[in-house]
Amino acid sequence: MNFEFLGDNFMSLTVTGLTQGAIYALVALGYTLVYGVLRLINFAHSEVFMIGTFVTTIVWAGLGFGVGASAPGTFGVLGLIALAIVAAGAASGGTALIVERVAYRPLRKRNAPSLIFLISAIGASVALFELVGAITDRQPRGMPSLVQPKVQFTIFGADITNLQIGIILSALAMLAGLDIFINRTRLGRGVRAVAQNPDVAALMGVNKDRVIMLIFVLGGMMAGAASVLYDIKVGLTTYSVGFLIGIKAFTAAVLGGIGNLRGALLGGLLLGVVENYGAGVFGNEWMDVVAFVMLVVVLLFRPTGLLGESLGRARA
């Protein structure tokens, strides 16, 4: 154990952890939205994220920015990122919508028990995973390093790079946007109504199917945005990339209180930071152990997660 290392690099480990956690949080939103409304764990969500990472590289390569290409100027890079967020958001959102249509809606119309949904979710996940695996020959796909990490400023001895700031800020902006949408708009109120009481929501004139499509698309778009940030940060993707990120994001959602949007943010950031501390103290190979031990400990004391309320109960 190396507590000295943790002490010496506390700030820098925190910022690295927050960066990773911001990506977890964005992916966690998809789990939490779907769970909040349908009480369903959408295991295929990790693959929705994975699709986004590939679409990002395809879009960039299509524009002449394949592996090894040198980055254009600042505005060019920002343009490429914005374009990728739109494209990956659309692709991931679309994938989520297809999963809903094919894997869940037919079961819902037949009032299937929840265990059946779970099996269908795992099936959809494996199908997407293997499909992309087959298409890509199970080879990883690289991309150009568009953003060269540059130290912008230093807090308490930690160097903060433009990349870290960019990732954390864009994740926070998207989370804030979603939070406002759910809590302040008419459509968002419809989502909360279905989460709290689907029958009464129908009596108010809310089209439940449309709300369900909406939450899948929103969750998928957030995962798509996360996938772009992931690509920029890691510079490499593969068909199995969703697995660990998916589990971590799901953990983050449960940690914060599944069904709760702000809980997803809190859970994601906390998970990213704590696992990074764990890696600092025990070594990198212990990172995931620390992450899941923390989940178990938190659930022992707060079985409903840290913020513990469902999307339905989350107040404006």
């Binding site: 008419r186 109120r189 109504a193 709290q196 108010m204 109960r313 989350a314």
Partner: peptide
């Protein structure tokens, strides 16, 4: 107005009323 009232517990009184005007 359904059996058991069906109030949305996590919404304010005003939001509940606004839900009635959803359409």
């Amino acid at each position: 107005s359904p059996e058991g009232r069906g109030i949305f517990p996590g919404m304010t009184v005003r939001e509940n009323l606004e839900m009635g005007a959803y359409t």
